[in-house]
Amino acid sequence: MATTAHDIERKTPKAVYVFEAPVRIWHWVHALSIVVLSVTGYLIANPLPSVGGEASQSFLMGNLRLVHFIAGYVFAIGLVVRIYWGFVGNRWSRELLYLPLWRGQWWRDLFEEIKYYLFLRREPTNHVAHNALAQAAMWFFNVVLGLFMIFTGFALYGEGLGLDSWADRLFGWVIPLLGGSQSVRMLHIVGMWLFIVFAIIHIYMALRADIMSKASSVSAIISGWRIYRD
C-alpha cells in the first residue's frame, strides 16, 4: 500500500498548543475545589462522630461549612472566569461552552466515538481538543451541572445569610421552585455524586487516551501542548 500524505503527517511528531494558561490553571483549581467541596459537603450531610468537651472549645462543623463556602466561591468564580475565557481564548477554549447540534459532522463524530468506546471501531476519531462525546460530557458536567450546583448552592447559602441578603435575592427563588429547602439540599447532594461519577470517568478516559491513542493527554493539561507521537 502506497504511503499517503495523511500517513506521513500522522507519523511526523507534531505538537499543538491547545490549553492556554488560564484554561490549565482553571482546570486544576476547579478540580481541587470539587474535591474540597465533595469532602466537606459529604461531611456536612453526614457528620463525623461527635466531638467531646464543651461546645465552646470546638468549631468542627462551623469550620467545615466555612471551608465549603470558600471552596464554593472559588468554584463559582472559576467557572465564570472560564466561561469568559471561552469568548476571548483560542478556538478550543470555546468547546466547553456549547454543543454544535446543528452540525451534521458533529453528530457523525459523536456516533463514531461511541462506536470506538464500544470496541466497534479500532481507531479513535482525531481531534485536537475534544471529540464530540468528550465535548458533550464536558458541556453537561461543567456547564449544566456546574451551574446547577452554583444555583442550588448559593440558594442554600442565602438561607444562612438571611432573607433579603444578596444570595437570597439572586438565588432564593430556586428553593420553592425545586420543592423546598430539604429537596434542594438532597438535589445538591445528588449533584455531588454526579461530580464523583464524572471524575471517575474523566480520569479513566484521560489515562486511557494517554496510553492507547497517539496524542498526549495528561501532560497536555499540565504543559498545554498536545504532543502526537508515532
Binding site: 453526614n46 445528588v190 461519577v197 470517568i201
Partner: peptide
C-alpha cells in the same frame, strides 16, 4: 435517599 441514589451511580461508574 440522595446518598443511596448517588452512591449507586458512583458505584456503577466505577
Amino acid at each position: 435517599t440522595a446518598d443511596k441514589v448517588g452512591g449507586l451511580l458512583a458505584g456503577a461508574a466505577a
